[in-house]
Structures are given as structure tokens and as C-alpha cells.
Design a protein around this nucleic acid. Structure first.
Length: 602
RNA sequence: GUGCCCGUAGCUCAGUUGGAUAGAGCAAGUGCCUUCUAAGCACUAGGUCGGAGGUUCGACUCCUCUCGGGCACGCCA
């Protein structure tokens, strides 16, 4: 029986190459007539078994083939076993349980994985899963009426990390911010700005009345307006100042928001706004397109169910046939008075996204926007002829704590925990990491005290500590070898055969999972999986470190054994690299030491 | 009334898209500092995966029903 050659290219991982090997084994068994299939080989997986005692890799291929082959899974596994055993990278093959094929690879395969990590550096784990698909991630999108506060941060971080994750997974990502500068909210902004403007000119405005924004931050805007325009608007009727003051306020707020976002390292590629959508005709055009597709008609909707509405009166309205695309009802695009309904700018905006060629649209929103997905999916389907896909990442609220006590937030009084405050107190990296330590759908408690705690149960610290330890070890080793000898380039050439203990290889296998995590997390649009992966990897590393307590020969630096130590430095450098790669996806800066420092920078 | 989300150890949460004996941290118990950082590590104990059916070689995962909690459900914005 001839050995099966493995075709290997740059983007292949251990898992994908073994997957290919298994597929080849199936083909070969068929070619030799020992296996007959009456259907295509179904989708099977090659993955690390839950229990490491089962081997390095496991595949369910035999169980998946039972129908096509008309044989019990263990019989199929027996046939494939013979083929797999002949592969040079395979050390052992076992059949277990209902028909799993467990593979053990030669140690050199794992040692080579260390070289791959050192070679790929920050690009280790990159995937071509997305195949360059154009994806637009829209996040933050807060209206320009105030600074970023705790309520915005989670969505901002989740969106940004998701964008980073999709980029790593091979998508062509655009980070976009959409703001509403044409509705009543920005009119309130304009009126409040005008009030603060009069205040800045020395008028006594008293308390901020109901229906205005109470926040102190608008005093600055009033003063800035005085600085620019002087007394130009004083005593003038609203009709004269409303437009220019609104524009001034919006620009001021957007500048402030961008500065806030910069504090946690968030920079959108594109800013889009509602006014532009209306003024450049996109809105009219999107309506026309729906009309041309025969999706607009005039009709009367039944009253909404399950909700008492005293003022309900049936009336003929301009409707969009969204029920053609799975919506529970058709939607009015114009109000009774003939003006556009409020969803129309959103519709226009999503038309614009499609027009720009995106086939995957992702919006990051709070769970309180529950109805959004049902309303917008039909829109996206209509404009793209069902070719583009809209996904919404809903994230739950963040509850803020200090010393275990909940911090009361009140938007009405303008008493909010600002993003700036969070970053100044715990550091940008910690804010970002912590926001990603939970599935977005579940509620998150953000405790200022816990985030900076240097203990095992603070995931931010635990992962950073692992990275800092790698740095520390390499610093110490530099005294033996000279720092010049510990670069990734030099370490790649090390003899890695000393890396052979089960504990060390377990760590390497953990690192080899990185690309699988990238792909799975990107597919699920769940960046928090990266945080959990890093936590796992850090635990493996800390565990190995502490093995040195019981057994000095397992310490990374063994003074009287330079070849061994040098090989282990390659391992440490690899761990450092993977941690950095993961932190980079999350947008957190890796820390080189923690002793007297807080995470401060992005 | 309808739709979406959640329900996993005493607490806070993961669970590799259907795989083998369901995992971490905290809290409880035990052991480990002559060290490259004990800011930690190892071990013990803890479960009817809300409940009941179904699909199949195999279900925390998919389907139906059901109970409990959250969020939505206008021509308002």
C-alpha cells in the first residue's frame, strides 16, 4: 500500500491538511474497490477530541459515511484506518466508540507548528473563509446628541472586534457609522445649543426646561458657537437660527464622539448620515426602485393586534409589500399626511449599502431594537434580489458597578458614566476585553473594581499576565543567549526536538486551535469566543509554568541545558505570538509587564 | 394576543454549529513559595443541561408542545 502524499499550501492548517488526508483515504479506498459509495462523501469534521486521551485529532467520517457505504461505521473505520496509517505524518490510528477514528500525529508535526507560528507572526490564524466577501459592519451609530457613555460601549466594542475578526477570517470589511441628523432629536440638540449659546452670551437661562438636553457638555457647544458667530443669532427667530445651529451642534457632537471612540481605539472607515441620504436623492431613488419592482401599493392596514390604541382610524396608505419577504405585515412608507414614514431613511440607507456592493450587512444594536431585523430584512432582500444577507447582533445592557454597588444611570438628569471616565479609570484594553467576556446576548456587569483586580477570576488580568510572563521569560533568557538570538526569525531555526513532553505538546495543540476559533467565531459573528480562547490558552500556559514548581526540569529556562532552553524559548515566543494575535483581533494592546502598571493603552 | 432572545453546578458563565464520561472561575475542602513573578498551580466535592415528547447510530445543540424570565410589536421616533 502506497503512502498518501499530503498536499500542503500556505493557508493550510494541521486540521485542514488532515481533513484532506482523510478525504484522500476515502477516495483511495473507493478506487481500490474496498469501499463502495452510492452518494457523495458527506460533510465530515476533523477536530480535537474533547478528551486528549483519545488522541490528537478525531474524525467522524466513518459515521457520516454509513448511509452512502451501506456498512456499519466501525467497519468503514477499519478500512480507512489502513490507508491513514500509511501517511507519514500519522503516528497511530485508533477506532473508538461508535466509530470515531482517532489520530495521533508524529511529534515533529507539532514541533513544526511552532515554526509556522513564528513564521506567520501576527498573521498566524488568518483564514480565507470569507474569500474577500464585502461585508459592512455598522456599529455605534449613536445620534449626535451627546458624548459616548456606558450604554454605547458594549456595542462599540463588539462591533469593532467583530470587524477585526471578520477581517482575520478573510472578509473585506468596512466599519461604518450612520447618524441621524434630520429628525426631531437633532432639533432638540439645536434648541438646547441655542439655549447654551444665550447663556454663554451672559443671559440668565435658569434651569434647563423639559424637552431639552440637560447635560453640562452642551455648555461648551454654546461657547464655541459664540466664539465662531458672536452675537449673530441673539434675539433672532428660531426659523433663522435653527438650521445653522443644528449643523453646528451636529458637527461639534460628531467631533466629540469621534474623539471618545478614539480613546478605545475605534475608527470607522465611513460615516454616513440621514440628511445626505435625503438631499442627494438616494431616498427618492430607493422608493422609486421599490415602485418599479411592483412592491408599492396603496392599501389599508388592519389595526395592530394585541395593543390598545384609542386613536386608531383606518386610512389608505402607501405600503411596501414586505410580507413578500417574510415580514408579518406590509409596512407604510408614507404617513397619512403624505410625509415619509420614519423607516424610509433607514430603507434608503440599506439600499445605499446594497448599491455599494456589500453582500453581507451586519448591524450591531441593543436588544431594545427587537423589531428592527424583521423590518429591515425584507428591505435588503428586495433591493438585492435576495442575494445580500442582513444579520443583526443584539447586545444586552451593561450594568455598571463600583465596589460591588450598582451605579445609577439617569439619562434625563444627564448623569451618565461616560466612555472617557471608563477608559481613564481602567484603561482602554481592559474595557474592551471585559466587554467581550460574555455572549453579547447575555447581560454584563461591568464593575470598575473587578476590572482592575489582579486575580485569577479577572480574565483581563489573567490573559495579560500570561503575555507579560512570556515577555519576562524572554527577557531573562536574553541574559543567557543575548536578545538578538531570541527573535522569531532566529528561533525558527532552533532544533525543536526537545519539545516533546505531553504538557508542552498540549500547549502547542492549544495554539494550533487558533485558526479554528477564528473561523468558528467569524461564522457565528461571536467575537467573545476569542476572549474565551485566550483564557483557555493562558490557562494552559500558566499550568505549564507551574509544572516547574514540582519538577525543575520542566522550567522554561534550564541553566545547564542550553539546547533545551533555546527550544523552549521558541515555544514561549510562539505563545506570546498567538496571545498577541488574539488580543489584536479584540483590539487590546498586549502588556509587557504588569507589576506597577494598569492597562492603559490600546 | 404575536414575534425574537434567554433558562446549564450554590453564584457568574462557557460549551468547538449533531459527537465519546457536559466544562471553567468564584464560593467550600486539601496540598504546593530555596523559583524565569505564588498577582499563581494541582487535587476533591458539586448536574434530571427548566419540563415533556419527537427526529437518528448519537441531542445541551435540531423540530413540536409546555413552564418561567427579558425585549420588542403604530401612520409615534
Amino acid at each position: 500500500m502506497s503512502a498518501i502524499p499530503i498536499e500542503k499550501n500556505d493557508t493550510m492548517t494541521i486540521y485542514s491538511s488532515i481533513h484532506a488526508l482523510v478525504a484522500q483515504a476515502v477516495q483511495q479506498a473507493v478506487a481500490e474497490g474496498v469501499l463502495t459509495l452510492n452518494a457523495e462523501t458527506p460533510h465530515f469534521v476533523v477536530e480535537p477530541p474533547r478528551d486528549p486521551a483519545h488522541g490528537d485529532l478525531a474524525t467522524n467520517v466513518a459515521m457520516m459515511l454509513t448511509k452512502a457505504a451501506g456498512k456499519p461505521p466501525r467497519a468503514i473505520a477499519e478500512i480507512l484506518k489502513k490507508h491513514l496509517e500509511s501517511a507519514p505524518v500519522v503516528a497511530a490510528v485508533e477506532i473508538a466508540g461508535p466509530g470515531f477514528i482517532n489520530l495521533r500525529l508524529r511529534e515533529t508535526e507539532w514541533q513544526n507548528e511552532i515554526r509556522t507560528i513564528l513564521h506567520d507572526g501576527r498573521h498566524y490564524g488568518d483564514s480565507k473563509l470569507g474569500q474577500g466577501t464585502k461585508v459592512l459592519v455598522e456599529y455605534v451609530s449613536a445620534n449626535p446628541t451627546g458624548p459616548m457613555h456606558a450604554g454605547h460601549v458594549r456595542g462599540a466594542v463588539v462591533g469593532d472586534a467583530l470587524a477585526g475578526l471578520l477581517a482575520k477570517a478573510g472578509y473585506d470589511v468596512t466599519r461604518e457609522y450612520y447618524f441621524n441628523d434630520a429628525g426631531t432629536q437633532v432639533d432638540v440638540l439645536a434648541r438646547t445649543t441655542y439655549l447654551r449659546y444665550r447663556e454663554a452670551l451672559g443671559e440668565d437661562i435658569g434651569a434647563i426646561p423639559e424637552g431639552f438636553y440637560p447635560g453640562e457638555y452642551l455648555k461648551d457647544v454654546g461657547q464655541a458657537l459664540v466664539a465662531r458667530d458672536g452675537m449673530k443669532w441673539q434675539g433672532k427667530p428660531e426659523a433663522e437660527w435653527l438650521d445653522p445651529v443644528r449643523e453646528f451642534g451636529v458637527q461639534y457632537m460628531m467631533r466629540m464622539i469621534r474623539e471618545d471612540l478614539d480613546l478605545i481605539g475605534i475608527h470607522h472607515d465611513v460615516f454616513t448620515n440621514e440628511r445626505e441620504m435625503i438631499e442627494n436623492g438616494t431616498l427618492e431613488k430607493s422608493f422609486k426602485i421599490l415602485e418599479d419592482k411592483g412592491l408599492i401599493y396603496v392599501g389599508t392596514l388592519p389595526p395592530p393586534k394585541g395593543k390598545v390604541m384609542e386613536d386608531w382610524e383606518p386610512a389608505p396608505l402607501t405600503l411596501f409589500r414586505s410580507s413578500n419577504f417574510g415580514d408579518s405585515t406590509d409596512r407604510p412608507l408614507k404617513k397619512r399626511d403624505g410625509n415619509w414614514a420614519y423607516i424610509m431613511p433607514d430603507i434608503a440607507y440599506h439600499y445605499d449599502k446594497i448599491r455599494r456592493g456589500y453582500s453581507l450587512l451586519i448591524n450591531v444594536l441593543g436588544t431594545d431594537h427587537g423589531g428592527y431585523l424583521e423590518r429591515m430584512r425584507p428591505v435588503v432582500s428586495a433591493f438585492s434580489d435576495s442575494k445580500a444577507r442582513l444579520e443583526v447582533i443584539f447586545n444586552s445592557i451593561v450594568k455598571v458597578f463600583k465596589n460591588g454597588e450598582p451605579v445609577k444611570l439617569s439619562k434625563r438628569s444627564g448623569n451618565l458614566i461616560t466612555l472617557r471616565e471608563m477608559v481613564e479609570q481602567v484603561g482602554a484594553g481592559a474595557v474592551r476585553f471585559f466587554m467581550l467576556t460574555r455572549d453579547p446576548k447575555s447581560q454584563l456587569d461591568f464593575d470598575f473594581t473587578k476590572v482592575v483586580e489582579q486575580t485569577r477570576d479577572n480574565p483581563v488580568f489573567y490573559v495579560q499576565y500570561a503575555h507579560a510572563r512570556c515577555c519576562s521569560i524572554l527577557r531573562h533568557a536574553g541574559e543567557i543567549f543575548g536578545a538578538d538570538e531570541l527573535t522569531a526569525e532566529k528561533l525558527q531555526k532552533a532544533d525543536l526536538t526537545p519539545i516533546s513532553s505531553p504538557e508542552e505538546l498540549l500547549l502547542v495543540k492549544g495554539m494550533a486551535n487558533w485558526s479554528r476559533v477564528v473561523e468558528a467565531a467569524a461564522t457565528a459573528c461571536e467575537p467573545h469566543r476569542v476572549a474565551f480562547y485566550l483564557l483557555d490558552l493562558a490557562a494552559l500556559f500558566h499550568g505549564l509554568w507551574n509544572k516547574g514548581n514540582d519538577n525543575t526540569s520542566l522550567r522554561f529556562i534550564v541553566a545547564d541545558n542550553k539546547p533545551l532552553t533555546y527550544a523552549r524559548m521558541a515555544l514561549i515566543k510562539a505563545v506570546q505570538t498567538v496571545l498577541q494575535s488574539g488580543l489584536a483581533v479584540m483590539g487590546c494592546a498586549p502588556l509587557e509587564e504588569l507589576r506597577n502598571e494598569r492597562p492603559t493603552d490600546v
